[in-house]
Design a protein around this nucleic acid. Structure first.
Lengths: 219, 219
DNA sequence: GATAATCTGGAATACTTAGTCTAGAGGACG
DNA sequence: CGTCCTCTAGACTAAGTATTCCAGATTATC
């Protein structure tokens, strides 16, 4: 137990200006890597796109791997920010369908181009960098847990069988999302992700308790 | 209409030996690119892994893009060969479950490592090379059509509602496969793809006609 | 078996790329 | 207001990387 510091390399103090520069670099890198892949993005491109210099880049990041780590974290934050408003208050089938619609619209806008920010990173990095894989997997799990929390609220409201395993359902929905996204990317159309999510949601519908809800609609 | 040849650059005659060398190159490239990505694979690595030389590589392929095209075609053939035996005779829910089991076992063996051969290529290339995207999309569609044909046989045998849209179901199952594969890759466990396929198959089960089948089993 | 093709060996080229290094500007904080 | 740390500039290095090229071995085909 000498002076051993665990994981974080204890980044030195950051000036306000420094934080801004760092942010600009990561943002540019994230965009480039999403469009051209990690291996397809060069440090020089990041420098140019961010309007910084070599020494700045290497001042804030030891090497490309460190930059990639920061990019993964930023993309995680981005995706979560985009998803949170929909998932945070998810508590009904209708809410689930609204989420589906938002996702499909998002994919439709770009004609499927550029897959899911996290999904692309996962595909490229999962087998080639263990630290990256761990970060990305954590993002998936946390994303799923948001979904699962919503499903649990649906159980509480009597819209979903309490026997259903919400974690497993969430994984299934997540898979439909990622797979649909990939097929939409290859086909340049939102149809696959729309179908995939519909299929997944139909599963949730099928797990609705026998209608004896508060609304009292007779069969 | 002079001498215009359409797509294929009219590859010159190939000797038996030449065909073999070419094959060796593509096989090595396919393996490397599956493991390290297209951008992460160098021509020199391909040369070394295939035991060939620079002039051989460039004798058979104009450039890296041409090699990548050949790799996509080989991976398509590989995946289809692996899937065909299961999908060709698919005509029942049980057959569908057997397919699922085979897929899950396959993923389990490698602990999720290395995603689907086609899925990885799709993620890396779909946005960066239009010819590649088209090839890959065609593979997905053809793969789905195998699945759809099996579902249609299930309809014929009365195991699936004839109203069900088999093409859409097939796309949904394919998305579950791809998304499940990706999540399994990130998590290094077959659980996600197992759950995703189970979810998709449960959907097919739910579309079974009201039991009035020939077997006449009472409830 | 001549001859023209395919096929192979490997050096050479032109360019990229990640990462280093020296020098100095700018701000924080006593 | 001086001193130290953060921050920036940009040339430089060393190692790759795709691709070309010339020369020669091998094989098809007449």
């Amino acid at each position: 137990m000498t002076s051993a510091r665990a994981e974080p390399p204890a980044r030195r103090r950051l000036t306000a200006r420094g934080a801004l520069t760092r942010e600009r670099i990561v943002r540019a890198a994230a965009d480039l890597m999403h469009a051209n892949g990690v291996a397809g993005t060069t440090m020089d491109q990041v420098i140019e796109a961010s309007g910084t210099s070599k020494s700045q880049l290497y001042h804030y990041f030891d090497d490309k791997d460190a930059l990639v780590t920061a990019v993964i974290k930023m993309q995680t934050a981005r995706v979560m920010e985009r998803q949170e408003p929909h998932l945070e208050q998810l508590s009904s089938l209708q809410g689930l369908r609204r989420w589906r619609d938002a996702v499909v619209s998002f994919v439709e806008e770009r004609h499927g181009a550029h897959g899911c920010e996290i999904g692309s990173l996962a595909s490229e990095l999962a087998d080639r960098s263990e630290p990256a894989r761990i970060l990305i997997n954590a993002t998936f799990r946390s994303w799923e847990s948001y979904l699962a929390a919503g499903l649990r609220r649906m159980q509480d409201r009597g819209e979903l069988d309490t026997e259903a395993d919400v974690a497993e359902l969430a994984t299934g929905i997540m898979a439909a999302y990622q797979g649909g996204h990939l097929l939409s990317q290859a086909g340049r159309t939102a149809q696959p992700i729309a179908l995939a999510l519909d299929l997944a949601i139909r599963n949730v519908e099928a797990l609705a308790p026998q209608r004896k809800s508060a609304s009292g609609a007779a069969s």
